[in-house]
């Protein structure tokens, strides 16, 4: 009876959850230095991004393309972009930050990556909520047309980052330079992800080009959910979903085969 897979899963679940909790506690204790200022920093950086884009908008005299307030519009683009970058970096960093822990046969790179991503997702949602509430408390604006759709778009945007981070972390076990080169791939995303414009206002040539960017769709779906006065004509959930699935599947396969062939039974050396 105990060999029945669902029973084995149920038996392993508490151990698995304890390990996920341990990784999350370690992340909180180490990345945010375990004090209030450290936690605050996680909120201040996206706020600084929002302010920077706000200043750029003012300097360029740019009008927002949606019938909403400027704070909500900038938050809808900047925060998912920043948080998806956070997710990429967190997963990439976990490979080196946990290299000693990963020598335990009880800890796998997928467990670490999954736990780090779960923390990143919760953090990013808190950051988004905090900035929306800040906008409301300072300027009195708050938009949330369809919370489920907004959450779905936000989830797709941040998960696209997490999936890309996982793929790069896996590939960098073969080509270590890739983890250092990842910021180069990420930099253009700021300009091609609809952070400070919408898909509807793009010229067709650019739109055809940007339509392959999963983050672009995540942000557009988020805006569909946030703003009652906006409906993106080009948002397609299948693009980020496909991207996420391809990245995770490829990363997983690479992870399993990254040393000399498939792992030998009972031999944990592949996990190094």
């Amino acid at each position: 009876m105990n060999d029945w897979p669902p029973v084995r899963v149920l038996e392993a679940a508490p151990r698995w959850l304890r390990k996920v909790k341990a990784i999350i506690l370690r992340e909180i204790g180490s990345r945010y230095t375990g004090d209030a200022l450290g936690y605050l920093w996680a909120y201040l950086v996206p706020l600084a991004w929002v302010l920077a884009v706000y200043v750029i908008f003012l300097l360029l005299g740019r009008r927002i393309p949606i019938d909403t307030d400027i704070g909500s519009f900038i938050c809808s683009g900047v925060v998912p972009y920043v948080c998806s970058r956070y997710a990429v970096n967190a997963i990439l960093r976990s490979r080196t930050a946990y290299r000693h822990i990963l020598s335990f046969p009880t800890v796998s790179p997928n467990l670490v990556g999954g736990a780090v991503f779960a923390l990143e997702m919760v953090n990013s949602l808190l950051i988004f909520g905090f900035l929306l509430l800040l906008n409301y408390s300072v300027f009195g604006f708050f938009e949330m047309h369809d919370p489920v759709l907004a959450l779905w778009g936000y989830f797709l945007a941040v998960t696209s980052g997490g999936a890309f981070g996982y793929l790069m972390a896996s590939l960098s076990t073969i080509v270590p330079a890739l983890s250092r080169a990842t910021p180069i791939f990420l930099r253009p995303l700021f300009y091609i992800s609809g952070v400070f414009y919408t898909a509807n206002e793009l010229p067709p040539t650019l739109r055809d080009l940007f339509v392959w960017n999963p983050l672009f769709h995540g942000i557009e779906i988020l805006r569909n959910g946030l703003f009652i006065g906006y409906e993106s004509l080009f948002a397609m959930a299948w693009v980020p979903i496909t991207f996420i699935l391809v990245c995770v599947a490829t990363g997983y396969i690479v992870q399993r085969r990254r040393l000399s062939g498939a792992p030998v039974e009972g031999d944990a050396s592949w996990a190094i």
Partner: peptide
């Protein structure tokens, strides 16, 4: 299990300790 060989294989199975007294994983 902290590092990988340039060539060849390191076979690890069961529970192999960190080098005794290792403190690199303490944050």
């Amino acid at each position: 299990g902290f590092t990988r060989p340039t060539e060849g294989n390191v076979h690890r199975s069961g529970r192999i300790s960190w080098p005794l007294g290792f403190t690199g994983a303490l944050h």
